[in-house]
Design a protein around this nucleic acid. Structure first.
Lengths: 194, 194
DNA sequence: ATTTTTGTACTGACCAGTCAGTTATAAAAA
DNA sequence: TTTTTATAACTGACTGGTCAGTACAAAAAT
């Protein structure tokens, strides 16, 4: 996995072109011709590099999920578990601020059986970060010890994903800190500070 | 809008066939032939009834969103706003328990610009129920009065939607009450009752 | 010298939408 | 009742276009 090199660059350009088109139109509606054109590459190059449209897409999913997982786990440190939860939420918001198209692709394709393998990595790595933080919170006694950590992790992840897209689509200039504050308030359930 | 009648029945059968196939394969990948076949109807009937594949789909969205909104607003009553919030969450979980395929279609297509009009109804009606309950909560002083109600509504809706699908796909026999309890615990932010 | 990319042309399968013809339904006429 | 009439609902073979993937010789990059 050399990061530089002509081939690696071509692949990244193809990922980037594909994720934007697929976010707008969906996987099936996006043609290989269109991806190649936007990437500034000949159609044959797509097949030379990935072999098939499906392989390009699962490669894209793997790539994005890797980036996302890295961003989340880098943010999971914090004095208390609730601090860590806040900063993981912020990291997820920031990640999708930068890779908004990927957020939409993920949301749309997350539950499709066709890419189960790629999505398994999402569960293990990205949701795993939330699960870890929530387990810490249980250990610290700030949430009840019968909390279903897996479900709660999916809940928070889905909540942030939804809101990140909503902001991108409907309120692009709303500051990300404000959105974060709203989510944190919901999650901590703090009562009327008036 | 007569509820019975040959035509209305055909339309419902087509909705039902379409939502299942589209949940599995996505909108574009689902062919009109396949929808017609599953509905036990000739292909021409689809076009006789809806005029186009797209019109069938937006009709399906409208139909489902109407059912969902009805279910949610019917549950929005409650002694306190937080009680009401709990029961709206439960109503959403139950609705997607029954119409799981629709949940997946909604999640995947909610942000596609092609069906903005149909999805506007979702914002107005379904998310509106959450927004109303949250406004009550603000009025009752149980959440801070600077809460961004619109964002919070989207957050809760997305959270429940994600978890409903996760349960359908990964833990179908987990009791719905347990999932509800987890979500409510997250939302109320109750601290270690041990 | 080898890997990677280009450009163009091609194929075979697939699919949304059409349309001329057929059947079901109900109301009017016999 | 039975028959006719009108039209609403449905049918399925067909069409025109689209698209993933292939082929390959020449060029460019490493």
């Amino acid at each position: 996995m050399k990061a530089s090199g002509r081939r690696a660059e071509t692949r990244l350009r193809l990922f980037s072109a594909a994720v934007e088109l697929i976010a707008e139109q969906g996987y099936t509606a996006t043609t290989v011709d269109a991806i190649a054109e936007r990437a500034g590459v000949a159609k044959g190059t797509v097949f030379y590099n990935f072999g098939s449209k499906e392989a390009l897409f699962t490669g894209l999913l793997d790539h994005g999920i890797g980036l996302l997982s890295g961003a989340l786990s880098g943010a999971a440190a914090g004095r208390t578990a609730l601090d860590a939860l806040d900063s993981v939420v912020m990291a997820q918001l920031r990640f999708f601020e930068e890779y908004g198209a990927f957020a939409r692709v993920l949301l749309a394709e997350m539950w499709r059986t066709a890419w189960q393998d790629a999505v398994a990595g999402l569960r293990r790595d990205a949701l795993g970060v939330y699960a870890g933080v929530l387990r810490r919170a249980v250990a610290e006694g700030v949430v009840r010890d019968d909390l279903d950590v897996e479900t709660a992790a999916a809940a928070v992840f889905g909540m942030v994903l939804t809101v990140a897209i909503e902001r991108k689509v409907l309120h692009p200039d709303r500051p990300i800190e404000r959105v974060h504050a709203t989510l944190v308030e919901l999650l901590h359930g703090r009562v009327a500070a008036g």
